[in-house]
Design a protein around this nucleic acid. Structure first.
Length: 439
DNA sequence: TCTGGGGTCCTAGGACCC
DNA sequence: TCTGGGGTCCTAGGACCC
């Protein structure tokens, strides 16, 4: 918590719906719902006109239709949202370079570098109004709610207090009296599960929470969460505004209107998703070592399976192949409603650099370290044949060693073995390009 | 026919190493 | 030979956020 109110939080009001109303004047003043329109879609954003009918974010579109049948139901136009978001972030960066976007419609701004002179309430309000005006101009009339306070937590709570189109400044020293009467769910990280645990312990408000000892909180909700809650209940929050946050994972998933039962269809869908993930990785110059699939069964139980490569990849056939073999482990006979593929353990360099950089620590289980050669011969994902092991594909390669994952059509994925890259027992057996055709 | 999609962070257990 | 403890990496699942 800072001595001065110098953290600002800005939240665009009903952002997706507002962009739709801006771009299509016939929708202005009318209920608009943006979200999935399929049988299993949910509401992403409801305009304030639609909220009057009880339509809320995360509600199923089916229920939203029941509550407000005359609303316009639209799927998102993410290009337009991204473009508009960029314009908003540019307005914020003109005030201070320290802007941390949380999503397309939300950001923190650290006002410390802004030349504000005094941080008295009048100056802060003027700054907030100036920003809101700037956003309106840059976006063709979108409104935003702004909160200013001594920490991220307080700024965020403040921006929520006078929505929509509001501005609230919480001056230093007034934080705890503001928070105490509020329900524990104002604290970021307290969702339904945590709120229920706290409720059972008789803790409802922030004031209640403040009386609970650190040990007791840790016992209730775990180490990390407990210490966080203990501090936030006292408005203690020193989290910095971080303009550059690194991407940790990239994923694509889809929920299907009817449950999937056909394994070959699932394989095809995973293959297509793997291609989309690889494309996004490449676009951002990323690659990753851990491939994860996500499977949601008909009864909503959600499973994940993952595997970690010896070196990072952005190669679609490799990701697809691993995803498909991970699916083999799962019993999907009851039907699958969601399938997804993700890559994590990201590096901002690609595998080729393994060959040019100095030797990494990591060792292979086959010893001979030859001079780095064969770069193009053993590309990840490439199909290979071993005289004894049979068919497999390149899982990773580097430093004169190629790691192969063997599999057969009959038995599925098999063992992983490493060989010297010049092993006469190992040969490519067909070009990999036939792989990856979606169903 | 309740329950999206893209993320982040945490926990807990096992393997493995020192 | 037995007893341990700590650290790191990996996997699976869950809570949470917008």
């Amino acid at each position: 918590m800072r001595a001065q109110a110098s953290v600002l939080h800005l939240d665009l009001d009903a952002f997706f719906a507002a962009v739709e109303q801006r771009d299509k004047p016939s929708l202005r003043g009318k209920p608009v719902v943006v979200g999935g329109v399929g049988g299993r879609g949910v509401v992403s954003t409801a305009s304030y006109e639609a909220r009057r009918y009880g339509v809320r974010s995360a509600m199923s579109t089916r229920e939203a239709r029941a509550r407000c049948p005359h609303a316009a139901f639209l799927t998102g136009r993410f290009h337009a949202y991204r473009e508009t978001s960029r314009a908003v972030m540019a307005v914020l960066r003109a005030v201070s370079p320290l802007v941390e976007p949380l999503s397309l419609d939300e950001a923190f701004v650290d006002l410390a570098p802004a030349e504000l002179g005094d941080h008295d309430e009048t100056t802060l309000r003027a700054m907030g109004e100036r920003l809101r005006e700037g956003v309106k101009e840059a976006t063709g009339g979108l409104t935003a709610s702004v909160g200013i306070g001594t920490s991220k937590f307080i700024a965020k709570v403040a921006s929520d207090l006078d929505k929509p189109d509001g501005l609230v400044v919480v001056m230093p020293g007034t934080e705890t009296e503001l928070l105490r009467p509020m329900h524990v769910t104002v604290i970021p990280g307290v969702g339904p599960a945590t709120a229920e645990r706290l409720r059972r312990a008789g803790i409802h408000t922030v004031a209640d929470l403040e009386t609970v000892s650190l040990d007791e909180l840790v016992r209730l909700v775990g180490r990390a969460h407990g210490t966080g809650l203990h501090a936030l209940a006292r408005a203690e929050d020193d989290r910095a505004v971080e303009p550059e946050r690194e991407t940790k994972s990239v994923s694509v998933e889809g929920t299907y209107d009817t449950d999937l039962t056909d394994r070959s269809l699932m394989s095809g869908l995973l293959t297509r998703q793997a291609g989309q993930v690889a494309e996004r990785l490449r676009k951002h110059g990323l690659s990753g070592r851990t491939i994860t699939i996500k499977v949601r069964l008909h009864d909503f139980t959600t499973l994940s399976r993952s595997t970690t490569l010896p070196s990072p990849t952005d190669h679609a056939p490799t990701i697809a192949r691993l995803a498909r073999s991970l699916l083999e482990e799962l019993d999907t006979s009851g039907g699958v409603r969601l399938l997804g593929v993700g890559v994590s353990g990201l590096a901002d360099w690609i595998q080729e650099e393994l060959f040019t950089d100095e030797e990494p620590e990591q060792e292979q289980d086959v010893a001979p370290v030859e001079p780095p050669t064969q770069r193009s011969t053993w590309a990840p994902g490439m199909d290979v044949e071993h005289t004894e092991m049979g068919r497999g594909w390149v899982w990773g390669s580097g430093r004169g060693v190629v790691t192969v994952r063997f599999e057969t059509a009959q038995t599925g994925p098999g063992p992983v073995r490493s060989y010297p890259a010049d092993s006469p027992d190992l040969a490519p057996w067909r070009p990999p390009e036939t792989d990856g055709a979606p169903v």
